[in-house]
Simulated assay, not measured.
Amino acid sequence: MTDELTPKPYAVEIAVNAGRDRVWEAVTQPALLRRWFGWDYDGLDAEIRHIFVEEATLRAPERMGWADGSYLEVTGDDDHAVVRAVREGRHAGDPDRYDAIEEGWRSFLIQLRHLLQEKPQGVRRTVYLTGTATGRQALALAGGPTTRAGRRVAWLVDGDGHLVVIAGRQDLGCAEAGHMEIVISTYGLDGAAFDVVLKRWSERWTPLAGEARITTAGDPAP
């Protein structure tokens, strides 16, 4: 079996200024998962149910696991918690090689922390940008200083209060272009205000990225 086909072990964790029980609800209740997990598209609710309800097994208090041996756990107390996404095993080959699930957790846990700590009100709606660009271009597009979360993910809260998470399949400092994903999470916007955000990001992303695509849900969930 080649290194590329061997499941890569990982351990992604994030500290949250919220109580353990509140965090556990946010990672197990579909209505709350909808407020931070992934990005809007018309199949998001079905994806959440498949991953967190149909496929997940409760293995211990505040731990859920999946058939591949990976698990998500929450530890802490009434005021602070740590969320860990783990796939155990020995590293095969390059421990820094790209793994979509690992990097997905890195991005999504940032979105979870934002929800729990900033407590934004109203329906979450997202703009999901994909295409080919350099990490430097994507970081510059964010329009402000970003915080890195590993080599491939960075984030910031922009001047309008929207969370922007930037993720690449290679180091964001690399000068070569590669596949990039940007999730802009908004909360509490009416249709007109959201359309302004969508138009602004579309106009900036489309001329910059190769094979640029912009995705959002036709009908956001309540």
Score class of each variant (00 low, 15 high):
T57V: 15
T2Y: 05
G218E: 09
G143Y: 12
L5M: 12
S70W: 10
V153Y: 03
R35K: 08
W24A: 11
V165H: 11
W66C: 06
P9A: 08
L129P: 00
D21E: 15
E73Y: 09
P120T: 11
I214K: 05
W36Y: 05
L58M: 12
A67K: 08
L189Q: 06
N17P: 00
A177K: 09
Q117P: 00
R152D: 04
I166N: 00
D158T: 14
D21A: 14
I101T: 12
R152E: 08
A133F: 01
V82P: 00
V196F: 02
G65R: 00
R22S: 10
S70I: 13
W36A: 00
G19W: 02
D190L: 07
I166P: 01
D42Y: 04
G161S: 03
W39G: 05
D158L: 13
T146W: 01
I182D: 09
T216N: 11
T147D: 10
N17S: 15
G161H: 07
D3V: 14
P9F: 05
E103C: 02
L139D: 06
A138F: 05
A140W: 00
E181H: 03
M180G: 01
Q170D: 07
A212L: 08
R35I: 03
L116M: 13
G178M: 01
L115G: 01
E62G: 04
G161Y: 01
V74A: 06
T28S: 08
P207N: 13
T57S: 11
G188P: 01
V16D: 10
W201A: 01
R204I: 03
T132V: 10
G38Y: 10
F52D: 03
W201E: 01
H162T: 09
E118A: 14
T206P: 02
I182F: 00
E203D: 11
I110H: 01
V53Q: 15
R204E: 05
A175Y: 00
A154W: 06
R200Y: 06
G76Q: 03
Y98E: 06
A217Y: 00
R204W: 02
E55C: 13
R148N: 07
R97L: 08
W39H: 15
F108V: 04
G168V: 02
T2F: 13
T134Q: 07
A26N: 04
R84A: 15
R84V: 12
G104V: 14
F52R: 01
E13D: 14
R20W: 01
L116C: 04
E54A: 09
G168W: 03
E4R: 15
A149R: 11
A46G: 12
A85G: 01
P220S: 10
W105I: 06
Y41D: 15
T2V: 03
V197N: 12
V53N: 12
P61A: 15
A11D: 07
L32I: 06
T186P: 07
A212V: 04
G93M: 10
H80V: 11
I110T: 11
G159T: 10
H80E: 13
R22L: 09
D160Q: 14
D99H: 05
L198M: 05
G122C: 08
D45W: 11
W39V: 08
E118V: 15
